[in-house]
Design a protein around this nucleic acid. Structure first.
Lengths: 233, 233
DNA sequence: AAATTGTACTTTGTATACAAATGATTGTAC
DNA sequence: GTACAATCATTTGTATACAAAGTACAATTT
């Protein structure tokens, strides 16, 4: 069911942005698989536009690192390797720590209240056992912290880096054994920020990433084994 | 040098990349001023290409944050404000610290040797009092550290963030009063990395950025005053 | 049978054409 | 003189055309 051509977004956006969002989503959700070629005419026909907006969208995907360009051959979906994900997580560990530290300094009373609610909300979401609901609550929690830093560039970078792991976060969230410690970690981060304890907030944020890393790496190795298995057949 | 098949690089790059590099450099050096409109036909005529490569280059500049798009009006060079530079430096402080910490773990003996030489080279460069020479030596020193992390994503991010300050680094480098402390900071960073003292290396890297920040902010305020003065006339 | 050349086909790179929207200017009414 | 409307020029957004490079595969040669 190749429905990555659903372009039913805002009609006012330039086509290139619609295409960009569509392709990005398709890549991040795995509908377009690593190594798959992005052929312009093919995509143009499928999406019902001309090559121009396709090309402009690909230029942006290229800079985001989601596709790689091969000269005179076109674009293909970038391979996600264990190394590349470790690299992303290494950077995120530092930036997430920075986020909570800055949040300690700059969070407003309203945002504190929002964060408290998001924390409760997350705990309640785990009870639904619905991965989509839980993932949304998790994003909401972290978003408040990131926004509280008031640093536009940091917000943009974190969003971009998070995207790279979109596919794997879902698997991580589904692991019910981890739910309790996730809730606990969120609680500690919330308390540390409200208590202006940068040291503890940063340490917990790093721990949070470390746990994700373990889970994601396991997931990747699994996928690679499966891929190798398919090849052997 | 056996360069009998050097195709002067520019010939082999797609025009969009030539245009991208050209425009980026023009923006970073201030040749294209903040707020200035980037009109496609105009640029196309100036650079002797058609609109297509211009547009694709602009899409990449857009994602890099160097230009902003106004719907149905086109691109203009992004304003650099004191706030936006502070944001960039805040992130760099964290990432530069991460760099030296990772370098402590991963630097090879060859890179240590390179770093030692780059350190001496920088000290010698300051004696020339030629800002271009000093800037190049400074870049070389930091590049070795960044490369030593072995983290592709981190390398890419640091390069991008450094670019934003291209214009101001020059002014910073020119201040001869700061040369001695720059040399000293480089020496401490070198020694800490070789001695595997992450704590000290990171602290010095942060200090290094703090000093740059002060200098750059002063520079920006100066420019803004000048701009305001021109307006008043 | 292996290697190489030649050819047809595919795909990208670039230019140009046309449509839609915006902004400026001119003209008219008050 | 000012306000408003119509028109025109400019500029972007999108589509298409054409050239050049790359790829695959068959035919020919060794």
């Amino acid at each position: 069911m190749d429905d990555y051509l659903d372009m039913t977004m805002d009609e006012v956006l330039p086509l290139r942005d619609v295409v960009f969002n569509t392709l990005r989503k398709a890549i991040l959700t795995g509908e377009l698989k690593p190594g798959e070629r992005l052929m312009e005419i093919h995509l143009a026909n499928r999406l019902g536009v001309s090559r121009t907006p396709i090309r402009e969208a690909i230029r942006k995907l290229e800079l985001e690192g989601l596709v790689i360009m091969i000269p005179r051959r076109g674009a293909e979906v970038a391979q996600i390797t264990e190394k590349s994900l470790k690299d992303v997580l290494e950077v995120r560990r530092a930036l997430d720590a920075l986020c909570v530290e800055l949040a300690c300094d700059r969070i407003t009373p309203e945002e504190e209240e929002q964060l408290r609610r998001a924390c409760d909300e997350f705990a309640r979401a785990t009870e639904t056992r619905d991965a989509t609901v839980i993932a949304r609550a998790d994003v909401a929690f972290h978003d408040i912290i990131v926004q509280a830093t008031g640093n536009r560039r940091l917000i943009q970078l974190i969003n971009n880096l998070s995207e790279q792991m979109y596919r794997y976060r879902f698997e991580y969230i589904k692991d019910e054994n981890r739910h309790d410690s996730l809730i606990e970690e969120h609680r500690i981060i919330y308390e540390s920020i409200v208590g202006r304890d940068k040291e503890r907030a940063a340490a917990t944020a790093r721990l949070h990433i470390d746990n994700q890393e373990r889970s994601i790496i396991r997931q990747i190795r699994l996928e690679q084994e499966q891929a190798a298995g398919r090849k052997r057949q």
